[in-house]
Nucleic acid binder design. Sequence first.
RNA 1: GGGUCGCUAGCUCAGCGGUAGAGCACUCGGCUUUUAACCGAUUGGUCCUGGGUUCGAAUCCCAGGCGACCCA
Length: 505
Amino acid sequence: MASDDLRATRLEKAQQLRELGINPYAYRWEVTHQAAALQEKYADLGNGETVDEQVAIAGRILNRRVFGKLAFFTLQDETGTIQLYLDKKTIQDSMADVDADAFAHLKQLTDGGDILGVKGTIKRTDKGELSVAVSEFAILTKSLQPLPDKWHGLTDVAKRYRQRYVDLIVNPDVRQTFRRRAQVTTAIRRFLSDRDFLEIETPVLQSEAGGADARPFTTYHNTLDMALYLRIATELHLKRLVVGGFERVFEIGRIFRNEGVSTRHNPEFTSIEVYWAYGDYHDMMVLTETLITTVTKEILGTLELTYQGQAVDLTPPWRRATMHELVQGATGLDFAQFATLDDAKAAAKEAGIGNLDKCDAIGRVLNEAFEQAVEPTLIQPTFVTDYPVEISPLAKPHRSKPGLVERFELFMVGRETANGFSELTDPIDQRKRFEAQAARKAAGDLEAQGVDEDFLLALEYGMPPTVGMGMGIDRLIMLLTDSPSIRDVIAFPLLKPEDREAAEE
RNA sequence: GGGUCGCUAGCUCAGCGGUAGAGCACUCGGCUUUUAACCGAUUGGUCCUGGGUUCGAAUCCCAGGCGACCCA
């Protein structure tokens, strides 16, 4: 039967309910129990046994098995499913004054997908299924759309993302993923709050995007008649707060980057940035390690994970190695020995590193070598330290290694997961770094940002020695939920409209 | 950006040049222990879109759309 016919059938049932004096879109239902709690509480109830405890539950009808004078429904609430045992005689006796044909109406006017409220007692059927033996029921919401195939569910990936609500209804794993995501962000907030970090929200709309190398989205304020950018990082505002005297601040917030879409990239994603005055990047590596292990242990109960078939052991302490050491180990190249950019490029090319054309500094050649030869091999958690200054415009120079900065990145399963550094607090040096970025921007680098004069002014008032760290929440959730795509951990990922022409009209 | 694969009923899929199919869902009938309930009957289509080849296209060709995977 066609989609419209299925919908018409259900609309007709809603109308019949109204004619019976029943509102197919009810106002409330007194819920006393949830499915998972009942399943747990009565796990030991024997087959055929009953319990004289009155319960009231509500949820969505997933499946109906209807006989002449008996029916079994599978009801799903947020916590799980439980069977309804619907016996004609019991229901007719209990509901005689409400609806003399209640059982017939239950059979005729309900469909899979409807939201049902029931009252009854607990019973484990002869066949061993824990059930609510229903005495009274009410159709709380009439569903007009048919549910996907009860056996195969919804498997079309595009449809799952476009209609996430259907995905959530029929795929319990998806609900588990988003439940876990919420648990993780809650646990992170608790961890930081316990250590006296304050969460302060900073602007999404900015007249100057900064704090990262990325193309921003542009937008427009009508009344002020000005162009605005959506933020590409929370960094520069959080550091202004440190200047203002907040010594421990963080923000979990949405970041927008105008770049491609892939299994690891969504144009809007969630980051956490943490700033801690009077600490350096060694302190932050310890804090990052402690934060991730504490949260993981709390949520998963173990530090030994499996990600897409790979074993990942988060037991601390995690490996720490400099970028130079790792590149030398993988390629044999010692970047400290190169006197000129051309020498570095020639040697890197010799070692099989490609994509070097755009590298305008030895540090960028080193970074290419790292990304190509080392990054994919870092499966177990690894802090890579001491980055070239050229690719780290906001980090403080290394206290003993010229040309490097005090920076770390955390890699797990071959992916960058966190990035931190001793923050650059010298306003004059920061201006030079910004100007170098601005020159790149002027030369056509769409990911380079300009000079943020107000941030420089803030630094001139004086920022205490501070360490900062940023982490991609989505990538962390991917790891903790064993999700292959970032779209599996974002409830509503960006998709192109299904019908381009219709969308453009 | 390149390559490969996919798009057929509400859902899951078959059909690959000769009348558009199945299971589930829906509708009707039967049924008081089912759990992918079962039995019987019926119903349901822009075969992603547009163009081309052909007597004839879901099927072959070209272009486009959306998506998945791999590569950069």
